[in-house]
Amino acid sequence: MLLAAVVVVVAAAVVITTRGGNSHPPTVASKETSPGLVRKETAPSPAATETSPPLATVRGVIGSEKKAFFEDPKVIEAFADEGMRVEVDPAGSRQIATSIDLKRYDFAFPSSAPAADRIQRQSKVSAKYTPFSSPMAIATFLPIAKLLDRAGVVKKAGSGKKPGVRTFDFARYLDLVARGVQWDQLDKNTAYRVRKNILVSTTDPRSSNSAAMYLAVASYVANGHAIVQGTAAEENVLPTVSQLFLGQGYTDNTSEGPFEEYLSVGMGPTPLVWIYEAQFLEAVARGRTKPGMVLMYPSPTVLSKHTLVPLNADGDRVGRLLSTDPELQRLAAEHGFRSGDAARFAKVAADHDVPVPPDLIDVVDTPSYDTLERLLGKVAKSYR
């Protein structure tokens, strides 16, 4: 008597990955489409069962500072509960807007509104989502903060043993840079006697949004605390902002690079690092910071609005979920991002003893996209 055949049931795997491939799964048409967007769904596998339907694979290109969020197993599970497997490739936000082939993706998720605006124009997409944001900040070390406090650049709110919010006076900083002041020339400097110019480490302005945000703040202050408008103003601030970048030497393409060096190497090469606030909070939450690592807020600062541009209906669904799903919003706060619920973010910061400003007051707008691009282009020419 012949034995009955064995039926093997294969369950669909649930993962979110960062990868460089450009292949898409087989797709079938969907009856549910949004105006101007085309939705695709993964074709049912012969091995799939009614109780384990296949997940629709959705691919996006994102600013590198959001990589850990999309790799979080809880985020993976939240998307899987909605029937999606989200795959992301990290890149510099300006790269996403200028040189990445977006035809490979269902959504683009740069770290700034100007970059998203350009993507919208190029892709002829009107929809966009801003599920969370993060102000720009400076990661440093307690000895450096105290040294700059004596130099009149850094101020700390509050008093006593409990740490307060530290602010970094950008105008005083630009004055030090303009005069070519070096670290070992600061009065009573016994903590960091290094013969090199006082400069904040950034990413490459030719590819990264965080460097563009640094230029936005610097140009605003250099322009007499006014947003740069017009050719005359651009030419007037160019020598100042170029000096901030050219004096650094090599710079990374994404914000992940300099912050990883800050975390792993210490204050030797990078005493001051321009970052997203969310990066520092996330590192503290994951136990990656060391005693003496502190956060400062430039005065003024600029708000980086993480803006998702859907390139089809599947990307649109990701944007809507990130903006409205309570679990994904909660997880975004755990990764240090600010969303519509200020109390949730404040609790995360308080739970990890990171002093943050509850309300962002000293925030400036970025120049128009075209002005910012012209300034970045002129700075890029200075490298040559």
Rank of each mutant, 00 (worst) to 15 (best):
S123I: 01
I119M: 11
R121V: 01
A116F: 09
L102T: 12
A127G: 06
K103T: 15
Q120N: 13
Q120M: 14
A113D: 05
A113G: 00
S123P: 01
T130S: 08
A108P: 15
Y105D: 09
A108Q: 12
K103L: 11
I119S: 13
A115H: 14
F107S: 08
Y129V: 06
T130C: 06
S126K: 15
S111I: 07
P114F: 04
S134A: 10
S134H: 07
D101H: 13
F107I: 02
S126T: 14
A113E: 07
D117T: 02
A115G: 13
S134W: 08
R118W: 00
F132I: 08
S126W: 10
Q120F: 09
V125Q: 15
P131D: 08
F107T: 07
S112D: 06
I119N: 13
F109D: 11
R104W: 08
Y105H: 10
S134Y: 13
R121D: 10
K128D: 01
K124D: 10
D101T: 07
V125D: 04
L102W: 10
R121I: 05
P131K: 07
A127D: 11
P110S: 11
A127V: 02
A115N: 14
D117L: 03
L102E: 15
F132N: 03
Y129G: 09
A108G: 02
D106E: 10
D101Y: 06
R118M: 01
D117Q: 02
R104G: 10
Q120V: 08
D106K: 09
S134I: 07
L102N: 11
L102A: 06
T130H: 02
A113S: 09
V125N: 10
L102C: 05
A108Y: 00
S111L: 14
S112M: 11
S134R: 07
D101W: 07
K124H: 00
